[in-house]
Design a protein around this nucleic acid. Sequence first.
DNA 1: AGCCAGGAAGTGC
DNA 2: GCACTTCATGGC
Length: 302
Amino acid sequence: MAALEFDKEDAKASGVIRLPSTYFDLSKTFDCGQAFRWRRLDSGLPQDTEVAYEGVASGRYLRLRQSAGEVFLESAPEAFESFWKSYFDLDTDYSAIEEILLKRDPSAAMAEAAQFGRGIRILRQDPWEMLVTFILSGNNNIPRIKGSIEALSERFGETVPQSALKAFPTPEALAGLALEDYRQAGAGYRDQYLLAAAQKVASGEADLEGWRVLDDEQLKKALLTLPGVGDKVASCIMLFGYGRRASFPVDTWVTKMMRRLYFTHDANAKEIKAFAEDLFGDQAGYAQQLLFHWGRNSEMEA
DNA sequence: AGCCAGGAAGTGC
DNA sequence: GCACTTCATGGC
């Protein structure tokens, strides 16, 4: 863990944005499996700090901390307005979303999941970074995914101003690697998917930015043409990279939770997805995050 | 030793 | 279409 001096850096950063943390919990937001490049800081922090993180998104460095019901976001106002405000989805009213979900699913389970996950925000991340991240995620575990992303960024990412951290590598950078480079990052057999996907993006054959104009169905279809991208990975890219809030990725955790809460048989992923998108509608993505976080982090009876 | 981890692709039917 | 198998790797 990096040890940094907050007070000195505060002055240099020429700005600290303060936000209420009722619907913005840093550890829930960063550790709920949607983002993999935020590091928890554990020293050199103001005394009343509950938790602090640093990270890089789209080549920009940020440090932020939480204490006494507030989030302190160390950013100049310009960077906040032009980037971080959107990144943290701060224009979205999560209280309203919670209310909608509790209306659509009045069960005690959803009420508990909503309470337990309150403070999660669905980050608006870079589609390219999400593509690579979730190709890596298949049949893998979160610590190892994080390790691979860090290794790739450290070796092949560009430098970031005001920081020792590296940016997530560009499509061009990853398209030029050897399979062995991916192996060394711990990607395992996913090396060929990653390389082929990077080459498609770098060449322009897969225009991730251009795909923003597509509707959900078209975007899903486009993503599925990429190697290593199936329905679940595509759903994650849509939710975390394109802000498609109706997307409901079905993984092992969500499958387990959904079977327990809504089915009396071993429903498959397709069945679960259809059921959830029908029940939760345009807010299925947040419901999925609540169930995922609840399933992974709460002590539930087997 | 064997199973699991935010699955996808290949094969056989 | 659908079920089954395989894939690299580290932790437990």
